[in-house]
């Protein structure tokens, strides 16, 4: 089943002579349950693409269609609501809210969308942070913080999980833990698109897309 369709996507920065196309006419489709790793040199437009998919930024032209809804034309508020119901995001630097406890950080999306939080218990025990529920993010290690961020991204059962170098700030042991968790959720049907510099990790994904100068230069399905 086709979940995501990207058509002729372009993102330009700057004006006239200084204009660069960070994402240059990119098209590809994503099926439900895929685990896609996006790799490529620095400055090739990976983060820009991810931001466009998450609706954190507006494309210059082209379409992004997520489960039959074209999100390129959505207004700011509509996009926000769409995102909180359908898209989970994980960042390199966790981006947790320092004022809130682990539990509250994870539950925040459900509060914002007035949803029930049925899978909370399952999430925290799988993520191994049950004992730290009442901690503030600042008192956690980087790996723990990233696991909280995963919990927060998954609590609303999003259609797609987007991750921008989720292991970029972690040592290899912690990076492996995070990767294992992502693979576990992918096995359970979660569609994931992850940007990474780590080619070893990328090998574990079901499909690797390679970027260069804003364009796809390779698109490999692995087994």
């Amino acid at each position: 089943m086709r979940l995501l369709e990207i058509k002729n996507l372009v993102k330009k920065y700057g004006q006239k002579e200084n204009e660069i196309k960070a994402v240059n006419n990119v098209s590809f489709n994503v099926q439900k349950g895929e685990f896609i790793a996006i790799v490529g040199p620095s400055g090739s437009g990976k983060s820009t693409l991810l931001n466009l998919l998450a609706g954190l930024d507006k494309a210059s032209s082209g379409d992004i269609i997520i489960s039959k809804k074209n999100i390129s034309n959505l207004k700011d508020k509509e996009m926000t609501i769409f995102r909180r119901n359908n898209i989970g995001i994980i960042y390199q630097f966790y981006n947790l809210i320092p004022a809130l406890t682990v539990k509250e950080n994870i539950l925040l999306p459900t509060l914002l969308s007035n949803k029930k939080s049925e899978n909370y218990q399952k999430l925290v025990s799988k993520l191994g942070i049950k004992a730290k529920e009442e901690y503030l993010p600042n008192d956690l290690s980087g790996g723990e913080q990233q696991r909280v961020a995963i919990g927060r991204a998954l609590i609303n059962k999003p259609l797609i999980l987007l991750a921008d170098e989720p292991t970029g700030n972690l040592d290899s042991a912690n990076a492996k833990k995070i990767m294992d968790l992502l693979m576990y959720y992918n096995k359970n049907g979660q569609t994931i698109i992850m940007v990474t510099h780590d080619l070893e990790l990328a090998k574990k994904a079901s499909r690797v897309i390679t970027f260069k100068d804003g364009k796809i230069i390779k698109d490999n399905v692995q087994n």
Binding site: R84, N85, N95
Partner: peptide, 13 residues
């Protein structure tokens, strides 16, 4: 700025 950005990314309208 950053904190508001995170909240908005999480769906705060």
């Amino acid at each position: 700025k950053k904190e508001f950005g995170i909240l908005k990314a999480l769906g705060l309208t």
